[in-house]
Amino acid sequence: MAYLELQDLTKHFTKRAGLFGGERQIVKAVDGVSLDIEKGEILGLVGESGCGKSTLSRLIMQLITPTAGSVVLEGERLADLPKAEIRQRRRDFQMIFQDPYSSLNPRMTIYSTLVEAIATRHPNILQDKSAAENAVSELMERVGLDPRFIRKYPHEFSGGQRQRIAIARALGPEPKLVLADEPVSALDVSIQSQILNLLRQLSEELGLTMIFISHDLSVVRYIADRIAVMEKGKIVELQQAEALFDSPSSDCAKMLLDAIPQIRA
Protein backbone atom coordinates (compact mmCIF):
# COMPACT_ATOMS: atom_id res chain seq x y z
CA MET A 1 0.00 0.00 0.00
CA ALA A 2 1.36 3.37 -0.95
CA TYR A 3 1.80 6.16 1.56
CA LEU A 4 -0.42 8.64 -0.23
CA GLU A 5 -2.97 7.44 -2.74
CA LEU A 6 -5.05 9.61 -4.99
CA GLN A 7 -7.99 7.58 -6.25
CA ASP A 8 -9.74 8.89 -9.33
CA LEU A 9 -9.62 12.40 -7.88
CA THR A 10 -11.92 14.81 -9.72
CA LYS A 11 -12.84 18.44 -9.31
CA HIS A 12 -15.27 20.20 -11.59
CA PHE A 13 -16.09 23.87 -11.37
CA THR A 14 -19.32 25.27 -12.73
CA LYS A 15 -19.00 28.49 -14.58
CA ARG A 16 -22.04 30.54 -15.35
CA ALA A 17 -22.13 32.06 -18.79
CA GLY A 18 -24.57 34.01 -20.90
CA LEU A 19 -27.01 36.73 -19.89
CA PHE A 20 -28.16 36.36 -16.24
CA GLY A 21 -25.80 33.40 -15.91
CA GLY A 22 -28.41 31.06 -17.33
CA GLU A 23 -26.06 28.75 -19.13
CA ARG A 24 -23.75 26.52 -17.18
CA GLN A 25 -20.36 25.43 -18.30
CA ILE A 26 -18.42 22.73 -16.51
CA VAL A 27 -14.67 23.21 -16.18
CA LYS A 28 -12.93 19.93 -15.47
CA ALA A 29 -9.96 21.30 -13.55
CA VAL A 30 -8.90 17.90 -12.23
CA ASP A 31 -10.34 15.00 -14.15
CA GLY A 32 -9.86 11.54 -12.66
CA VAL A 33 -6.32 11.64 -11.30
CA SER A 34 -4.96 8.46 -9.72
CA LEU A 35 -1.45 8.49 -8.25
CA ASP A 36 0.49 6.54 -5.66
CA ILE A 37 3.26 8.23 -3.74
CA GLU A 38 5.64 6.20 -1.59
CA LYS A 39 7.00 7.35 1.73
CA GLY A 40 10.14 9.47 1.37
CA GLU A 41 9.62 9.94 -2.33
CA ILE A 42 9.89 13.25 -4.16
CA LEU A 43 7.30 13.38 -6.89
CA GLY A 44 7.60 16.11 -9.52
CA LEU A 45 4.37 17.46 -10.96
CA VAL A 46 4.76 19.48 -14.15
CA GLY A 47 2.47 21.09 -16.67
CA GLU A 48 1.58 24.37 -18.32
CA SER A 49 -0.34 27.07 -16.47
CA GLY A 50 -3.99 26.18 -16.31
CA CYS A 51 -3.44 22.41 -16.51
CA GLY A 52 -4.85 21.87 -13.01
CA LYS A 53 -1.62 21.52 -10.97
CA SER A 54 -2.72 24.01 -8.35
CA THR A 55 -6.26 22.64 -8.06
CA LEU A 56 -4.78 19.19 -7.56
CA SER A 57 -2.49 20.48 -4.84
CA ARG A 58 -5.43 22.13 -3.07
CA LEU A 59 -7.37 18.90 -3.22
CA ILE A 60 -4.48 17.01 -1.65
CA MET A 61 -4.17 19.68 1.04
CA GLN A 62 -7.92 19.32 1.80
CA LEU A 63 -8.46 23.00 1.11
CA ILE A 64 -11.26 22.22 -1.33
CA THR A 65 -13.52 19.19 -1.47
CA PRO A 66 -13.36 16.90 -4.49
CA THR A 67 -16.32 16.38 -6.81
CA ALA A 68 -15.47 12.69 -6.85
CA GLY A 69 -12.67 10.38 -5.81
CA SER A 70 -10.61 10.47 -2.66
CA VAL A 71 -7.27 11.16 -1.01
CA VAL A 72 -5.98 8.26 1.09
CA LEU A 73 -3.16 8.96 3.51
CA GLU A 74 -1.65 5.89 5.17
CA GLY A 75 -4.77 3.87 4.41
CA GLU A 76 -7.15 6.48 5.78
CA ARG A 77 -9.69 8.12 3.52
CA LEU A 78 -9.41 11.81 4.44
CA ALA A 79 -12.84 12.79 3.14
CA ASP A 80 -14.51 10.45 5.65
CA LEU A 81 -12.99 12.22 8.64
CA PRO A 82 -14.96 14.89 10.51
CA LYS A 83 -13.95 18.53 9.94
CA ALA A 84 -12.26 18.93 13.33
CA GLU A 85 -10.20 15.84 12.68
CA ILE A 86 -9.10 17.21 9.29
CA ARG A 87 -7.95 20.36 11.02
CA GLN A 88 -5.82 18.20 13.28
CA ARG A 89 -4.49 16.31 10.29
CA ARG A 90 -3.57 19.47 8.43
CA ARG A 91 -0.39 19.65 10.50
CA ASP A 92 0.72 16.56 8.65
CA PHE A 93 0.78 18.28 5.30
CA GLN A 94 2.36 21.65 4.76
CA MET A 95 2.88 23.87 1.77
CA ILE A 96 5.73 26.01 0.48
CA PHE A 97 4.63 28.71 -1.93
CA GLN A 98 6.21 30.38 -4.91
CA ASP A 99 6.52 33.90 -3.62
CA PRO A 100 8.41 34.29 -0.36
CA TYR A 101 7.57 38.00 -0.44
CA SER A 102 3.84 37.54 0.00
CA SER A 103 3.61 34.25 1.88
CA LEU A 104 5.14 35.51 5.14
CA ASN A 105 3.37 37.87 7.53
CA PRO A 106 5.33 41.15 7.30
CA ARG A 107 4.37 42.16 10.86
CA MET A 108 5.63 39.03 12.56
CA THR A 109 9.24 38.43 13.49
CA ILE A 110 10.87 35.19 12.43
CA TYR A 111 10.49 34.05 16.02
CA SER A 112 6.72 34.58 16.17
CA THR A 113 6.17 33.05 12.72
CA LEU A 114 8.12 29.92 13.58
CA VAL A 115 6.96 29.50 17.17
CA GLU A 116 3.37 29.58 15.94
CA ALA A 117 4.19 26.82 13.46
CA ILE A 118 5.89 24.69 16.12
CA ALA A 119 3.03 25.23 18.60
CA THR A 120 0.50 23.59 16.29
CA ARG A 121 2.26 20.32 17.10
CA HIS A 122 3.58 21.14 20.59
CA PRO A 123 1.15 23.62 22.20
CA ASN A 124 2.98 23.39 25.55
CA ILE A 125 6.04 25.05 24.14
CA LEU A 126 4.35 28.46 24.44
CA GLN A 127 4.54 28.24 28.23
CA ASP A 128 8.27 27.73 28.28
CA LYS A 129 10.08 30.67 26.75
CA SER A 130 13.57 29.25 26.68
CA ALA A 131 12.40 25.93 25.22
CA ALA A 132 10.53 27.85 22.54
CA GLU A 133 13.60 29.86 21.67
CA ASN A 134 15.71 26.76 21.48
CA ALA A 135 13.21 25.05 19.22
CA VAL A 136 13.08 28.05 16.89
CA SER A 137 16.87 28.38 16.79
CA GLU A 138 17.19 24.71 15.97
CA LEU A 139 14.67 25.04 13.16
CA MET A 140 16.52 28.07 11.77
CA GLU A 141 19.82 26.22 11.80
CA ARG A 142 18.23 23.29 10.06
CA VAL A 143 17.32 25.47 7.06
CA GLY A 144 20.64 27.33 7.07
CA LEU A 145 19.65 30.57 8.78
CA ASP A 146 21.71 32.17 11.51
CA PRO A 147 19.72 32.10 14.81
CA ARG A 148 21.07 35.61 15.52
CA PHE A 149 18.37 36.90 13.17
CA ILE A 150 15.56 35.45 15.31
CA ARG A 151 14.03 38.88 16.10
CA LYS A 152 14.14 40.22 12.57
CA TYR A 153 11.22 40.83 10.22
CA PRO A 154 10.78 39.29 6.75
CA HIS A 155 11.60 42.55 4.91
CA GLU A 156 15.09 42.49 6.38
CA PHE A 157 15.94 39.34 4.45
CA SER A 158 16.78 38.63 0.82
CA GLY A 159 14.52 36.51 -1.39
CA GLY A 160 16.51 33.33 -0.87
CA GLN A 161 16.60 33.77 2.90
CA ARG A 162 12.86 34.45 2.93
CA GLN A 163 12.26 31.21 1.09
CA ARG A 164 14.33 29.49 3.80
CA ILE A 165 12.05 31.03 6.43
CA ALA A 166 9.02 29.80 4.49
CA ILE A 167 10.54 26.32 4.42
CA ALA A 168 11.24 26.47 8.17
CA ARG A 169 7.64 27.51 8.73
CA ALA A 170 6.44 24.53 6.73
CA LEU A 171 8.70 22.18 8.73
CA GLY A 172 7.59 23.61 12.10
CA PRO A 173 4.51 21.37 12.53
CA GLU A 174 6.65 18.27 11.72
CA PRO A 175 4.72 17.37 8.58
CA LYS A 176 4.77 14.02 6.83
CA LEU A 177 4.01 15.48 3.44
CA VAL A 178 5.33 18.73 2.02
CA LEU A 179 3.80 20.22 -1.07
CA ALA A 180 6.12 22.72 -2.72
CA ASP A 181 4.32 24.85 -5.30
CA GLU A 182 6.92 26.44 -7.61
CA PRO A 183 9.28 27.08 -4.67
CA VAL A 184 12.19 28.37 -6.77
CA SER A 185 10.48 30.03 -9.74
CA ALA A 186 10.66 33.50 -8.23
CA LEU A 187 14.34 33.22 -7.30
CA ASP A 188 17.58 34.05 -9.09
CA VAL A 189 19.38 31.15 -10.75
CA SER A 190 22.21 31.26 -8.21
CA ILE A 191 19.75 31.15 -5.30
CA GLN A 192 17.67 28.38 -6.90
CA SER A 193 20.53 25.91 -6.45
CA GLN A 194 20.81 26.74 -2.75
CA ILE A 195 17.12 26.12 -2.13
CA LEU A 196 17.10 22.92 -4.20
CA ASN A 197 20.09 21.61 -2.24
CA LEU A 198 18.30 22.43 0.99
CA LEU A 199 15.05 20.70 -0.01
CA ARG A 200 16.89 17.60 -1.11
CA GLN A 201 18.96 17.47 2.06
CA LEU A 202 15.87 17.95 4.25
CA SER A 203 13.94 15.24 2.50
CA GLU A 204 16.83 12.84 3.13
CA GLU A 205 17.37 13.84 6.76
CA LEU A 206 13.72 13.93 7.77
CA GLY A 207 12.39 11.27 5.42
CA LEU A 208 9.89 13.75 4.04
CA THR A 209 7.52 12.85 1.29
CA MET A 210 7.37 15.72 -1.14
CA ILE A 211 5.33 16.82 -4.11
CA PHE A 212 7.28 19.35 -6.10
CA ILE A 213 5.18 21.38 -8.52
CA SER A 214 6.84 23.35 -11.28
CA HIS A 215 6.57 24.37 -14.87
CA ASP A 216 10.34 24.14 -15.26
CA LEU A 217 11.34 20.59 -16.12
CA SER A 218 15.06 21.26 -15.78
CA VAL A 219 14.61 21.99 -12.07
CA VAL A 220 12.24 19.06 -11.52
CA ARG A 221 14.65 16.64 -13.21
CA TYR A 222 17.24 17.46 -10.60
CA ILE A 223 15.12 17.04 -7.50
CA ALA A 224 12.38 14.52 -8.29
CA ASP A 225 12.49 10.73 -8.24
CA ARG A 226 9.49 10.39 -10.52
CA ILE A 227 7.78 13.02 -12.66
CA ALA A 228 4.07 13.21 -13.44
CA VAL A 229 3.06 15.33 -16.42
CA MET A 230 -0.35 16.93 -16.24
CA GLU A 231 -2.44 18.25 -19.11
CA LYS A 232 -6.03 19.47 -19.06
CA GLY A 233 -6.74 17.97 -15.65
CA LYS A 234 -5.32 14.53 -16.41
CA ILE A 235 -2.01 12.84 -15.73
CA VAL A 236 -0.75 12.05 -19.22
CA GLU A 237 2.63 10.59 -18.30
CA LEU A 238 4.36 9.20 -15.23
CA GLN A 239 7.99 8.13 -15.41
CA GLN A 240 11.29 8.05 -13.58
CA ALA A 241 12.82 11.52 -13.85
CA GLU A 242 15.75 10.55 -16.07
CA ALA A 243 13.62 8.31 -18.27
CA LEU A 244 11.21 11.15 -18.93
CA PHE A 245 14.06 13.29 -20.18
CA ASP A 246 15.49 10.54 -22.36
CA SER A 247 12.28 9.27 -23.87
CA PRO A 248 9.17 11.39 -23.29
CA SER A 249 6.12 9.66 -24.72
CA SER A 250 3.37 12.27 -24.42
CA ASP A 251 3.19 15.35 -26.64
CA CYS A 252 2.80 17.50 -23.56
CA ALA A 253 6.10 16.29 -22.06
CA LYS A 254 7.86 16.77 -25.39
CA MET A 255 6.56 20.31 -25.65
CA LEU A 256 7.67 21.16 -22.10
CA LEU A 257 11.13 19.73 -22.82
CA ASP A 258 11.47 21.69 -26.07
CA ALA A 259 10.55 24.90 -24.31
CA ILE A 260 13.49 24.81 -21.87
CA PRO A 261 16.00 27.45 -22.92
CA GLN A 262 19.30 25.78 -23.76
CA ILE A 263 22.80 27.08 -23.26
CA ARG A 264 24.48 27.03 -26.62
CA ALA A 265 28.21 27.06 -26.25
Binding site: V189, Q192, L196, N197, S218, R221, Y222, A241, I260, I263
Partner: peptide, 14 residues
Amino acid sequence: SIPAMQEKGEQLYT
Protein backbone atom coordinates in the same frame (compact mmCIF):
# COMPACT_ATOMS: atom_id res chain seq x y z
CA SER B 1 25.26 27.19 -10.63
CA ILE B 2 22.59 26.50 -13.27
CA PRO B 3 20.65 23.43 -12.04
CA ALA B 4 20.06 22.14 -15.58
CA MET B 5 23.81 21.86 -16.21
CA GLN B 6 24.42 19.51 -13.31
CA GLU B 7 24.17 15.79 -12.80
CA LYS B 8 21.17 14.48 -10.94
CA GLY B 9 21.84 13.48 -7.37
CA GLU B 10 25.03 15.40 -6.80
CA GLN B 11 25.09 18.50 -4.62
CA LEU B 12 24.31 21.54 -6.75
CA TYR B 13 27.10 24.10 -6.96
CA THR B 14 26.23 27.37 -5.28
